[in-house]
Design a protein around this nucleic acid. Structure first.
Lengths: 171, 171
DNA sequence: CACAATTGAGTTGTGTGCAATTGAATGGTG
DNA sequence: CACCATTCAATTGCACACAACTCAATTGTG
């Protein structure tokens, strides 16, 4: 009734694209959530959620930086980070203090506990990698593809924005 | 202070995996959200969110099926679908009615409006595909990789479950 | 120096996503 | 037939994401 699928062997281009589109968005969505699920199981021991783990990864490398920079690394805004960091602070893993230089900025810094947690986290990547069944080279290739995709999608989002066109910048 | 990055040419395996892991989980996470953002911009015209669009895609192909089946197609449970379907019903796109055969089951069916929306949605895939900058073949290859990944991750999640081991099934 | 524009966190509201629970309906077993 | 385990949808509670907004601090300009 709805599909009214093509009567003959003719391809209706739109239907064709629709099918393809369904596959790619399904696949990405499903892969993302499957990954999330595996991380959830493994990170439960550390008392971290998946996004919290991403934050800790950045902090283990930089160990002190403002919320703004953290957001740039993770592509997250304060609306997501503020409550997340509050939870990490409540868990005793990080401390937040306003910068002396710029009172608007809040510096996030690992506590002793936060630093110590890194030791227990070292085994996580190995377990994740083995869960994927992919070798290092496959992972690298897939990562590169995904980064290409993200770059292209970001560029497209800027060109065809949710809020308005670039021409709107000067009202 | 924390990183204590390897002094010489020596690779600390754990650190190496940690770095790699960060890249793959960052990449997948970022790609998923970038995709979501592009869909959001394009779907705004249709008054749909990205997950709602996924549900509509399934319904446009099957046009009547129980919540359970919908969840199997989308890998979502009733906790996610129930409120989502309520919103689609409030928007006048679907109707929900309990099955006559099995009173536990709820049949989801497109309304006239829901059927009509498909016409306006036909242009969406083309816009998405062009946003990715990928050709059909690249998309197909990426999709296949992601599906492999999902399959492997699901299998691993079952073997190393969040709730308990398979041996726990018979207490 | 005064004042407008910008920047950075935080808050609010909406919409997922998922674990855990509830409650009704169904099916199998004795 | 009675009873118990299973199934399905819905609900509850928690944690992201993100848009839109608020508020304070800073910067740029006259």
């Amino acid at each position: 009734m709805v599909g009214a699928s093509y009567p003959g062997g003719m391809n209706t281009p739109d239907d064709d694209w629709l099918r393809l589109d369904q596959q790619i968005c399904f696949s990405l969505h499903a892969a993302s959530r499957a990954f999330n699920g595996v991380y959830r199981g493994i990170l439960k021991d550390l008392g971290l959620t998946y996004p919290q783990y991403l934050v800790m990864l950045v902090l283990w490398e930089h160990d002190e930086l403002p919320v703004k920079k953290l957001g740039e690394h993770l592509r997250l805004d304060s609306g997501t980070l503020s409550p997340l960091l509050k939870r990490l602070e409540a868990a005793g893993l990080v401390r937040r203090e306003r910068s002396a230089r710029d009172e608007r900025s809040v510096e996030v810094r690992l506590t002793e506990e936060g630093v110590a947690l890194r030791g227990r986290a070292l085994q996580v990547p190995r377990r994740i990698a083995s869960s994927t069944g992919f070798g290092p080279e496959e992972i690298r290739a897939l990562r590169a593809r995904l980064d290409d995709l993200t770059t292209a999608l970001d560029a497209a989002a800027l060109a065809d924005p949710p809020g308005g066109s670039p021409a709107d910048e000067r009202p």
